[in-house]
């Protein structure tokens, strides 16, 4: 019996169109839910506070003290560095924290509010739900990174002089190109967070307690970075999803060093594939009892 006969005829015809293959409607709905939460905006505001705090602190103390990334010192000379410095500061902890919250909450949060069963009965399709959840988490990664970058650029414009930007190769590029590179870096960092988002999605399918999934995801990101610091685990380093996180500096070289961009993308793709498959394995036939 085909599905058409199940759908019935007559009055249903006006209510049910042909199934939209891509399901953009649900994706948009997912984004709407994500970005209508106060929590999401609180996290983005906290991320925006990072460059603002850095800029204000440097403005008040009249210059950096040499700690942190070297080009932090250059903020006083060029406000466009605020965004980059803030990214370097936010990458190890703040960005993984927010991504962990969003990704860890993705399925477990729906389970805990009881909406998961209604979504599945709608029916949303389990694989489609996973894909949409991951896509929404990816959009959040981009939003978070752009928030840091844009807030940094804006506060830099407000507090510091702005001019042509010196790259770490020593070459100088125009403001327009530096903005383009900032955008590229935001994309790079976003890509770098996708692996963590996939891990969070997988963890989120393991439990009905969103807080646990969020915490576990954040812990995973911290553990990965600690392992990345230990020389004893050097063989493991290139396989850690955090391996390329701070290599966004390669986009500040002249010419741009694309190899880390490509390697980062490949690594994250592998993480997304592996943990996406794990999440599918876990979620495809999971008993939804919440």
């Amino acid at each position: 019996m085909s599905s058409e006969s199940v759908l019935g005829t007559g009055s249903n015809a006006t209510e049910r169109g042909p199934r939209r293959a891509l399901g953009w409607g649900f994706f948009l709905s997912e984004l709407a839910v994500l970005f209508r939460r106060r929590r999401t905006w609180a996290m983005l505001a906290a991320l925006a506070a990072v460059p603002i705090l850095i800029a204000v602190a440097i403005r008040l103390t009249d210059g950096g003290d040499g700690r942190g990334p070297a080009f932090l010192d250059r903020i006083t000379q060029n406000g466009l560095f605020v965004g980059l410095s803030a990214l370097a500061v936010a990458i190890p902890l703040f960005l993984p924290l927010t991504v962990g919250v969003v990704a860890g909450d993705s399925v477990a949060g729906e389970a805990s509010t009881g909406t998961l069963r209604y979504l599945l009965v709608s029916p949303v399709g389990r694989i489609r739900l996973l894909i949409v959840k991951f896509a929404a988490a990816a959009v959040f990664c981009l939003a978070a990174t752009l928030t840091v970058t844009v807030a940094g650029i804006l506060i830099g414009l407000a507090l510091f002089p702005v001019g042509p930007v010196a790259l770490i190769s020593g070459d100088t590029v125009s403001v327009a190109e530096s903005l383009l590179r900032s955008l590229l870096i935001a994309i790079y960092v976003t890509l770098g967070l996708l692996g963590l988002a996939a891990i969070g999605l997988f963890i989120s399918t393991l439990t009905d307690a969103p807080v646990g999934a969020m915490a576990a995801t954040v812990v995973v990101s911290i553990v990965a970075q600690v392992l990345g610091q230990l020389s004893q685990t050097e063989w493991l380093h290139p396989w850690l999803f955090s391996y390329y996180w701070l290599d966004f500096g390669d986009l500040l070289r002249q010419p741009i060093e694309w190899s880390s961009f490509g390697a980062n993308a490949l690594l994250q793709l592998a993480y997304v594939a592996v943990f996406g498959a794990l999440a599918y394995g876990r979620f495809a036939t999971k008993d939804v009892l919440s």
Binding site: L7, E15, G25, S29, G125
Partner: peptide, 15 residues
């Protein structure tokens, strides 16, 4: 309700 309706891939957005 709009959200749950959007989850239904068959439900028409127009209506």
């Amino acid at each position: 309700l709009r959200r749950l309706d959007a989850a239904d891939g068959y439900a028409s957005r127009a209506t």
